[in-house]
Computed example of a mutant assay.
Amino acid sequence: MLTRGARCAYRIVFNSVLRRMDAERAHAFAANVIRMIGGNAILRRLATAVARPDPSLRVRALGLEFPSPFGLAAGFDKNAAMIDGLAAIGFGHVEVGTVTPLAQPGNPRPRMYRIPRDRALINRMGFNNDGAQAAADAVGRRRTDSAIVGVNIGKNKATPAERAVDDYVAAARAVRAVADYLVINVSSPNTPGLRGLQELDALEPILRETKAAAEGVPLLLKIAPDLEDEAIRRICGLVVEVGLDGLIATNTTIAREPLSERARVVEAYGAGGLSGRPLRRRSLEVLEVVRAALPEDCCIISAGGVTDAHDVRERLEAGATLVQGFTAFIYEGPLWAASINRGLVGKR
């Protein structure tokens, strides 16, 4: 009853207030609420009591025990400021970032747009963050020791592609002591030239040297949904050859075909990564390609178009080890993760 009422209240607030705000300002408002929950012991305990995942949902992966297979994808908590609050409201893990070695402001605003009709977002944030050391300090200050935290790392915009490996190594070194796992992000469409690093000749040294810099911390690679299936298979082969611990499929897409109002959206919002429900089909297709190409013990995190417990269960049945979401959080509200966890154990 509490959950249904809270979700109804959120929808009223979203439709009457948040939906009228610029998307990035609305995100900042939500972030402040989540930080407040995480920073207050009473609120944190109350949230945890409502949203704690059922013990039957525990998953062993990457040498860690996740309280639920469902976690929050990178991009929501760029500077690791909300870990305690996000864990309290039911996420089985929180992936922070993307963080870069040096702080950078990202792309000019406006750079995030909601598309409510498609339950989607377009963003061209451009890795805005306070830098890897600031993220490491923030992760180290978290109060919730049980929260599993991944750190997603990228290169600075000003770093030329031929020196990208230096940035991934520097970021990994900065955060490895506090991260439960690391993710190499070469698949965001919002940093010029970044996706070119998915070519095998450029990718191999990044994977090998970042793995060495991680010093035993589990390391995964995040790929784009816009790659051809054969290119995905070749990347999977490199992941196995180098000895990475897993792969995240997928990042946002540059495609606009899945949108119901493609022409209007392209004209109104321009470039950026599309996430949310329109990505669901392609993300599932990529998961199936990846699962067939990787060994059974290789961790696969499926992301893209996940809305409810049915979607999470579908990904798990298709071979995902863990599942992540982000965009639906904006539309469903703060009890979204708790609702998914209940759905996974058949509760209503």
Results as ranks from 00 to 15, higher is better:
R45I: 07
D22G: 04
R58E: 14
V33Q: 06
T48D: 10
L18M: 12
M36R: 02
N40Q: 02
A30R: 01
R52N: 07
R60W: 07
H27I: 03
N32F: 10
R45T: 13
V17T: 10
A41C: 09
R44M: 07
V59T: 15
N40G: 04
V50L: 13
R60V: 14
E65T: 15
M36S: 04
A41Q: 12
V50Y: 01
P53G: 04
A31T: 08
A26Q: 02
A61R: 10
I34A: 02
V17M: 04
L46G: 10
R58W: 11
R20H: 15
R52D: 05
R25S: 14
A31V: 07
R25D: 15
F66C: 12
L43A: 05
T48I: 00
N40C: 09
F29A: 15
G63A: 06
A41K: 11
L57F: 04
A41P: 13
D54G: 08
V59G: 02
F66V: 11
A41R: 14
V59E: 09
A26D: 08
A49E: 06
V59L: 04
N32M: 09
G38L: 06
L62D: 10
A49R: 13
N40F: 01
A23M: 06
R19E: 15
N40P: 07
G38M: 03
R19N: 14
L64M: 11
L62C: 09
R45K: 11
N40V: 01
R19P: 05
L62Q: 12
A61M: 11
R25P: 03
D54S: 13
A47Y: 03
V33A: 03
V33P: 03
A26F: 01
F29W: 14
V17H: 03
I34V: 15
L57P: 09
A31K: 03
R60K: 15
A28E: 14
A30W: 00
A31F: 00
R45E: 14
R20C: 12
A26G: 15
N32I: 10
A41E: 14
A41D: 15
P55S: 12
R58Y: 10
R19S: 15
D22A: 07
D22Q: 01
I37L: 04
H27Y: 05
G39W: 07
A47G: 01
E24N: 00
R58D: 08
R44Y: 06
G63E: 04
A47H: 01
L18Y: 06
R44A: 13
A26T: 09
F29H: 10
A31H: 00
A49L: 13
A61K: 06
A61C: 11
A47P: 01
E65S: 14
E24V: 00
R45Q: 14
V50H: 01
L43G: 02
